[in-house]
């Protein structure tokens, strides 16, 4: 005797009782959600601090350098006095470059976070042996 088999398509709705993503964990203040958020916050804050540190170490030391070595102000590369070349011209593309790199990194961090929370392998990622 052949058994009757019911033929169905793929489920249209995610199975009830199991969250479709880990976003619930992040929202509901579970220990797991806490770990996710902390890691994203740490990544983004670390990135921000690195960009600001670079800003302080470049533009930020200009007054100190010229304070300690005022003779530098007389240098005229390309016929423009050095401070005017640095602050009037080069500072602007430099700031733009920092901003552009920051946005690329920040979006990459967010994508990684989204993959982690929302990933296709959300079901089996719970088991420790897959990691």
């Amino acid at each position: 005797m052949t058994e009757r088999v019911r033929v169905t398509g793929p489920p249209r709705h995610p199975a009830a009782g199991r969250p479709a993503s880990r976003l619930g964990d992040v929202h509901e203040q579970t220990a797991l959600g806490d770990v996710y958020l902390r890691s994203l916050l740490r990544e983004q804050l670390g990135l921000a601090v690195r960009v600001l540190g670079l800003l302080a170490a470049t533009l930020g030391i200009v007054p100190l350098v010229f304070h300690l070595a005022p003779g530098l102000a007389d240098a005229q590369p390309l016929g423009i006095p050095l401070p005017w070349l640095l602050l009037g011209v080069l500072a602007h593309p430099f700031l733009l470059l920092l901003a552009w790199r920051y946005v690329r990194r920040a979006e990459r961090n967010e994508r990684a976070f989204a993959d982690l929370v929302h990933g296709d392998n959300a079901d089996n990622a719970d088991s420790p042996e897959t990691s």
């Binding site: 800003l55 602050l87 009037g88 500072a91 602007h92 700031l95 901003a99 920051y102």
Partner: peptide, 20 residues
């Protein structure tokens, strides 16, 4: 030249705003 910090600062302020 010390007044050049005004335009530089007004632009850099947006970078600080962006990252923070």
């Amino acid at each position: 030249a010390d007044m050049l910090w005004y335009p530089v600062g007004w632009t850099a302020g947006y970078l600080v705003l962006l990252v923070l």
